[in-house]
Design a protein around this nucleic acid. Structure first.
Length: 234
DNA sequence: CTATGATCATGA
DNA sequence: TCATGATCATAG
């Protein structure tokens, strides 16, 4: 099976990688990517490497998904549906630290159980994450950026305590109809920021009087101070 | 519109 | 310099 995958990987041009059946198989595929450049992986998949990411912001993430055989598409599921593992690339600056915050999910109270931490969408998404560190210094051409060692991560008890506290305090405000007033300054590890095509996009929200209101969609993001810890513990 | 994938770009 | 607020592409 491993041989088949390696052959498939080395020879494929437009052939879709099958999703990994086990965690070990997934990690083996990650090993194949470690130390390779984005240009090498891109060429192997028959993808064009853009000059920069300005108009292709999700390109790196989509490339790694394809290379590892993620199968969730744009459904609201973990990237590896069978393994219940979420995939996230982690852009690394020249100092070896996360360069950007990490988007997790949209802020919403329409979901069932969205008012309870243990059933929350955010907790489910962060319950098991495969982080792929990737060079992201602007001075390195996209195709020459190296892929780092993958980190398969579950939040520690200490980390989850903070995440839960942040999530509950932020969601308290959302429920009170204050979502549009929340700024990115709030939260220790989690923050809420705009998440939309632009600032004019509107979504259904709740006003301070509990009525329906049109607001600019926002999302939960992990601060770099949090993802920095993962690099050290991984 | 919502979901997926994120990074850009400017003000402080 | 860097975090906040804004934005880009694509599928359904």
């Amino acid at each position: 099976m491993l041989v088949e995958c390696l052959i498939r990987f080395s020879t494929s041009q437009n052939i879709k990688m099958l999703p990994p059946k086990t965690q070990d198989e997934l990690l083996a595929r990650c090993q194949q990517l470690t130390g390779k450049t984005l240009g090498q992986v891109s060429a192997k998949l028959g993808w064009q490497t853009p000059v920069d990411l300005r108009r292709y912001k999700g390109w790196v993430g989509a490339l790694i998904e394809e290379a590892l055989g993620a199968d969730a598409g744009n459904q609201a599921e973990p990237d590896f549906t069978q393994l219940a593992i979420e995939l996230k690339t982690l852009p690394i600056n020249r100092q070896g630290q996360p360069k950007e915050s990490t988007y997790v999910c949209t802020v919403s109270m329409q979901q069932n159980g969205e008012l309870n931490w243990h059933q929350s969408w955010l907790r489910r998404k962060l319950s098991h994450v495969l982080w792929i560190p990737i060079e992201a210094d602007a001075e390195i051409p996209l195709a020459q950026r190296y892929i780092g060692q993958a980190i398969l991560w579950k939040p520690s008890v200490e980390q989850e305590v903070v995440l839960q506290r942040d999530w509950e305090s932020l969601m308290d405000r959302v429920v009170l109809g204050e979502q549009s007033e929340i700024t990115a300054k709030e939260g220790d590890y989690l923050q809420i920021r705009p998440k939309a095509a632009n600032s004019h996009i509107v979504a259904k929200g709740i006003s301070e009087y509990g009525l329906e209101e049109k607001i600019n969609p926002k999302g939960f993001y992990l601060r770099t101070s949090f993802t920095q810890q993962l690099l050290q513990q991984g």
